[in-house]
């Protein structure tokens, strides 16, 4: 018998007062142990979805099951299984990180002795031990984000939901947070991540759903999604300016500035042929890099494709 999924979202709908339809029947599932990316542009419905999963938003229809427990019908039992790192800071800035973590455990009914042990452990993991007894408002932005991760771990959840956990965090701390979250996932916790850093999602997540205008527009494995990317664009730094750009079979070459060219070519094309052709025209390439992150390119394409389709579908329905 296959294990119960960590999350099943079934035809979830949300219409806010005033008629804004934030979710239009969203369905997807996340398997146990998965590292799942939930992506979408601003206003797509991600935060509403996370709000419903964490019971901060009341659904208008449908349901979600966390490890088989209904969020709408068995709220308290479902909440026991999740940890939430929200997008906005939501702790008392006048309390100390240690107290914030211990109180959080208390809300989950965890005995104080265990709570103290866990608070020390997770604050240390988040490199916050030396700030544990200072008022939270004195922490830097990155430290506050890490505090929210430590707090979310206090009930040692089976499903950890991270809503843009690394927003505004410098790259060094971001990488250490990735390492920590990756470690949590490797230890068996299912993780759902929303982020605007698509490099983060590509590096960490195995499966992905893209939501736009309250609808899931893509739901697949990261590998399958990336495989859909049939062309790639590179930026080439060249040794000397070129007067005219050569025509190379299968490639589109554009000039970005005097010493930088942009080349778009199918993923199937041998890149050595490109370098050989450039060399034959006296162009020396010093370095090259991807113009955009691969997932970013796909994300834009998926979302834009969905939006291009939307008016057509409406017109057809109207006809």
């Amino acid at each position: 018998m296959s294990p119960v999924p960590a999350l099943v979202v079934d035809n979830l709908r949300k219409t806010y007062e005033g008629g804004v339809e934030a979710l239009k029947g969203v369905s997807f599932r996340v398997e146990q142990g998965d590292f799942f990316a939930l992506l979408g542009p601003n206003g797509a419905g991600k935060s509403t979805l996370i709000g419903i999963l964490s019971s901060l938003v009341n659904a208008s229809g449908g349901d979600a099951h966390i490890f088989g427990v209904s969020v709408r019908k068995q709220r308290n039992a479902a909440m026991r299984l999740i940890g939430l790192v929200p997008q906005e800071l939501n702790f008392n800035q006048f309390e100390k990180p240690f107290d914030i973590c211990v109180n959080e455990a208390g809300f989950y009914g965890i005995p104080r002795a265990v709570a103290i042990e866990r608070a020390e452990k997770y604050l240390a993991t988040m490199s916050l031990s030396d700030k544990a007894h200072e008022q939270a408002r004195r922490l830097s932005g990155g430290m506050k984000r890490r505090l929210m991760i430590a707090r979310a771990m206090m009930n040692e959840p089976k499903l950890l939901i991270l809503d843009e956990p690394t927003a505004g965090v410098d790259i060094e701390i971001r990488r250490s947070m990735w390492q920590f979250i990756d470690g949590i996932n490797a230890a068996g916790t299912t993780v759902i991540l929303t982020t605007h850093y698509l490099e983060e999602a590509e590096q960490l997540c195995r499966n992905i759903a893209i939501i736009d205008h309250g609808t899931i527009v893509e739901n697949t494995s990261m590998r399958s999604l990336l495989a859909k990317l049939d062309i790639e664009t590179f930026v080439l730094d060249i040794a000397a300016p070129v007067a005219t750009l050569p025509a190379i079979d299968g490639c589109t070459l554009r000039r970005r500035d005097e010493r930088r060219l942009e080349v778009t070519l199918p993923r199937t094309q041998n890149i050595n042929a490109l370098f050989a052709a450039l060399s034959a025209h006296g162009i020396t390439v010093i370095s090259m890099r991807n113009k955009t992150n691969r997932l970013e390119e796909l994300f834009v394409r998926v979302v834009e494709h969905g939006r291009d389709d939307a008016p057509r579908a409406t017109a057809e329905a109207g006809a």
Partner: peptide, 17 residues
């Protein structure tokens, strides 16, 4: 204050009745 500072959410997302 807890509502305004949003830390009431700590309790709202917990299993506390």
């Amino acid at each position: 204050g807890a509502k305004f500072g949003r830390y009431v959410e700590e309790m709202l997302v917990s299993p506390m009745p």
